[in-house]
């Protein structure tokens, strides 16, 4: 394992930890976007460039937009509430880094890697040909999911403005 990969995966863990631990929701969303971005670099290093582009643009772009929109409509937190919440959060969440360290230590030292027999697979194909020639059910599924999502938007968002 090259050093750069180790650094990347440790950074991935740290950003996701920050996402969980940080107090303001907006920062959590930024942390999530960062996690996504680092994940896409790892995906690129693992030989999946197309999926990495998708991850970068959709997950760290579009999903952050969705979250930021939702948050800007919902949370209006006063200074005092924020202070209370910070204390609550400190009490509630300080276990998490400990749990992670202990779990990581245990996994590294007290368990053995499971036996792994890798299957023989056909020689590398192109993702485009796989997606468009072999995964037809998934394509159909994607289209139906998008249709369902369109109904979701039409039902959950449209009457919102109408009633105000």
């Amino acid at each position: 394992m090259a050093a750069i990969d180790l650094i990347l995966i440790i950074m991935l863990l740290l950003t996701s930890l920050w996402t969980v631990l940080t107090i303001r929701l907006i920062r959590a969303v930024v942390g999530l976007a960062l996690t996504s971005a680092i994940l896409s670099v790892i995906m690129f290093r693992l030989g999946s460039p197309l999926a990495a582009v998708f991850e970068l643009s959709v997950c760290s772009g579009l999903i952050s937009v969705i979250f930021v929109t939702t948050i800007s409509f919902t949370s209006r937190v006063s200074k005092e509430r924020l202070f209370v919440r910070r204390r609550e959060r400190f009490v509630k969440f300080w276990y998490l880094p400990l749990i992670l360290i202990v779990a990581g230590f245990l996994l590294l030292h007290f368990s053995h890697p499971p036996a792994l027999k890798l299957p023989v697979t056909p020689a590398g194909q192109d993702v485009r040909s796989v997606l468009w020639n072999l995964r037809h059910p998934d394509l159909l599924g994607q289209v139906i999911v998008l249709l369902a999502g369109a109904f979701g938007v039409a039902i959950l968002f449209k009457e919102d403005t109408h009633e105000r």
């Binding site: 197309l50 999926a51 991850e55 959709v58 997950c59 194909q125 993702v127 072999l134 995964r135």
Partner: peptide, 16 residues
């Protein structure tokens, strides 16, 4: 990797 990427792309669409 081709199959894995195809799966991940579908997964991301559903997630969004």
């Amino acid at each position: 990797q081709a199959l894995a990427q195809a799966l991940v792309i579908t997964l991301i669409v559903i997630e969004v």
